[in-house]
């Protein structure tokens, strides 16, 4: 017997056939079972009574108010967090200052804090039991159980997405291209627009898409801060829960299906952009 086995042809990193099949098969089964099947269930449940009743459920005043709320929250929270995230990533990647590591940890905080705790925090800070809340109330400003509270909760929960995507990219790229632009006479603003931004656009886009998906889908923090007042402060995810608890399963799943489609749409958009710009993407990658 020799130790040489003819199976060891091809690349050194290639696993034996059974291992490969096991890995590919395992992944496929997992994705089908835990991602695809639930998604399919949402759509089949929504269409259980046919198209008409699904559409009818979506045109319920409560459902429409919830959709409006979710879309307006995302329309404000996503651009704001894109700007905050960009500013934070820029500060961390391009400047040296003390406390940088602490700032990075702080940016990650919303990931490690349970959204429910985040919601409670806002209620405690702005609610009727705090002096700030009393002062706000006296001046006729409502934060908790109103639009500003929902916005704050969403901002808090979705803050890290853009910054997290940008920081590694910006650190890797360093500052020399910006320095080059400055020595060539470009102003700081022009440098940002023509050098910094084009170099991070893919990471920025991806961060914004993730941020958007979460802003629309956030449940825990929003559920607590909004008080889930139907037609007033309910968002799509909280409305889905309320419909479901009232055994209005077609309404619940129709609304859930719309949420899912928004998520699928963002993914599709990302894939489409990557496919359209594949050449440029390959050409401008780091050498």
């Amino acid at each position: 017997m020799s130790d040489f086995t003819p199976a060891q042809t091809g690349r050194a990193t290639a696993e034996p056939r059974p291992v490969r099949y096991l890995l590919i098969g395992g992944t496929t089964v997992f994705v089908a079972l835990f991602l695809f099947a639930p998604l399919l269930t949402v759509f089949t449940e929504a269409l259980a009574d046919g198209w008409r009743s699904a559409l009818a459920a979506l045109s319920l005043p409560d459902a429409r108010a919830a959709a409006r709320m979710t879309l307006s929250i995302a329309a404000i929270a996503v651009p704001l967090n894109a700007i905050f995230g960009l500013a934070a990533a820029w500060a961390i990647a391009k400047f040296d200052f003390s406390g940088k590591a602490f700032l990075i940890t702080l940016i990650d905080l919303p990931f490690s804090v349970s959204p429910v705790v985040a919601g409670l925090m806002l209620v405690l800070l702005f609610g009727a039991n705090s002096s700030l809340g009393v002062w706000l109330m006296a001046n006729d400003m409502r934060v908790v159980f109103a639009f500003p509270g929902i916005l704050l909760a969403t901002l808090f929960v979705t803050f890290p997405f853009v910054a997290r995507e940008l920081i590694p990219v910006m650190i890797e790229q360093g500052r020399t291209e910006e320095e080059a632009a400055l020595t060539l006479g470009a102003s700081g603003w022009r440098t940002f627009l023509t050098v910094t931004l084009p170099n991070i656009r893919w990471a920025l886009l991806y961060g914004v898409l993730l941020c958007n998906a979460r802003a629309m889908g956030e449940f825990g923090a929003v559920a607590i801060v909004s008080g889930k007042i139907r037609g007033k402060t309910a968002t799509m995810p909280t409305m889905v829960e309320m419909f479901y608890n009232e055994y209005l399963s077609v309404a619940a799943f129709s609304l859930a299906a719309v949420l899912a489609m928004l998520a699928l749409l963002t993914l599709l958009l990302k894939t489409l952009l990557e496919w359209r710009h594949a050449d440029l993407l390959a050409a401008t990658r780091l050498h």
Binding site: T176, E177, E179, A180, A181, L182, T183, G185, A186, S187, T194, V195, P198, N199, L280, T284, R285, L286, H287
Partner: peptide, 19 residues
């Protein structure tokens, strides 16, 4: 200011705008 100096600078790794 850096812009007003008009120094032609060639960086160590050239720092060409890769996009």
């Amino acid at each position: 200011s850096i812009q007003a100096r008009r120094a032609g600078f060639v960086f160590q790794n050239y720092a060409l705008f890769r996009h």
